[in-house]
Amino acid sequence: MSAKIVVGLDGGGSGNRAVDYAKKLAGQIGSCELILVYVIEWSPFTFQTPEENEERHKRREEEISAAQSRIIQPALGRLADEGIPIRGLVKHGDVAETLDRVAKQEKADQIVVARTSETGMIRRIFGSSTANLVMHSTVPVTVVG
């Protein structure tokens, strides 16, 4: 039975570090599938105008296709020649919760994420997605420095 690793992308350099590390792990394990996940931060508890609601479905489709082409495809491209089974997913929701949910659904063995780049004020107020994931995840998490 092959192993499964969920890799959290953030659309930046730290996401690439996570991908590189997961690739190394997969190589060591031998038979291992990588699932790259990019989460679009979204909350069901925000206030919207009627127009925003009317166009929401359309915007969601646009957000997903933009994330596919800008983030998932390049990441898949980086691993195309490695011969590792690989898939990419785009999800909406809270980053930590969503990565954990995908990992559970896919029965993944672990989640690999990079240390996030939020610093100072923002992290103090909102906390970091990585820290939240480490605190609440039900699947082992590896944080790449």
Partner: peptide, 13 residues
């Protein structure tokens, strides 16, 4: 279905 208009959002709008 996350990312679509939620019940909460429809109600508050």
């Amino acid at each position: 279905d996350a990312g679509e208009v939620s019940h909460f959002q429809a109600l508050t709008t």
